[in-house]
């Protein structure tokens, strides 16, 4: 799209003469200001909400590394043979990309937080751990459990991170609803501003008649009204956006990783998003008033 910036600056610099011809007050002024403000406030919150759910889904997804653990608890003399049996089963299981028994050192490192650095791993009847890496397709855990119970009775499969899968799905769905809400809010702003602009223009039909009578061009009239409404929507949008942003800033700071409500907010460049909200309100007002004004002018000779 080709934007003529001189026209854009002209639009905002304005023409005090042209501004004067549109009567200043009326309930439509407040209607536009208020609805743009309220909708911008909501939009900023929904934006924050969408970002938070996005963050949440990501967070949970990252935790869900595609690995599971098989734990083998068996008498010391059977441990090695059962480990070998499990590894053999895993080799022929579809969806398993790799498997590896943890070494004594690695097991000691895992136990260290609980028992200190000098755990005599050899002397303790601790289970052996096998790390299973899934392929992207994933394996059928029930099938694997069944085969394990046949080949190695001491083996148990722990795929604890899998339970989060539905949560991620839910988070993604929430994010989708967030974007849907944004769309609906934008549509409502459009509808309200169109109504307000129409009401204002109908109320000012006589003004438009007089302007045409004294030789005003359509562009002059449209411009005067469009400017008034766009600036109103921009102002309302900016006030709503600022209030919502402050409200979000004032929310308690995150306590624990992955908290949901406490994550509501914007980080870094995400703060640019709320800035778009009033601009969007302005654009909607611009288009809506333009259409309404053009329509009314068609009835004015």
């Amino acid at each position: 799209m080709n934007i003529d910036w001189t026209k854009v600056t002209e639009f905002f610099a304005g023409d005090t003469q042209a501004d004067k011809v549109v009567p200043p007050t009326g309930y439509t002024a407040w209607l536009t200001l208020f609805s743009a403000g309220a909708m911008a406030f909501l939009a900023v919150f929904v934006l924050a909400f969408s970002f938070a759910t996005g963050k949440l889904a990501e967070h949970w997804g990252a935790d869900l590394s595609r690995s599971s653990t098989i734990k083998i608890s068996a008498p010391q003399d059977q441990l090695d043979s059962q480990t070998a049996a499990v590894l053999k089963v895993l080799e022929t299981t579809p969806g398993v990309a790799g498997a590896r028994a943890l070494t004594d050192d690695e097991q000691r490192a895992l136990l260290e937080p609980w028992f200190g650095p000098d755990v005599p791993v050899d002397a303790l009847p601790i289970p052996r751990l096998i790390e299973v890496i899934e392929s992207s397709a994933g394996f059928d855990s029930d099938g694997l459990r069944l085969r394990l119970s046949a080949e190695a009775p001491g083996a148990t499969l722990d795929d604890h991170t899998r339970w989060r899968q539905p949560l991620i799905k839910a988070a993604n769905r929430l994010r989708f609803f967030g974007w849907m809400s944004l769309l609906l809010i934008a549509a409502s702003v459009g509808a309200i501003i169109t109504l307000a602009a129409n009401a204002a223009l109908v109320a000012n039909k006589q003004v438009i008649d007089v302007l045409r009578l004294v030789g005003a061009r359509d562009t002059y009239i449209v411009h005067a009204f469009v400017r008034r409404f766009t600036l109103r929507a921009l102002t309302g949008g900016a006030v709503g956006m600022l209030l919502a942003s402050f409200a979000i800033l004032l929310l308690p700071t995150p306590q624990a990783e992955g908290g949901f409500l406490t994550d509501l907010g914007f980080v870094g460049a995400q703060w640019l998003w709320p800035l778009i909200v009033p601009l969007l309100a302005g654009c909607v007002a611009f288009v809506a008033t333009r259409i309404a004004a053009t329509r009314i002018l068609r009835e004015t000779p």
Partner: peptide, 18 residues
């Protein structure tokens, strides 16, 4: 047919403005 929110002087000047 005047613009009632503008002064007489501004109304007389309206054709110049537009």
């Amino acid at each position: 047919q005047f613009l009632n929110h503008l002064s007489v002087s501004d109304n007389i000047a309206l054709p110049l403005m537009v």
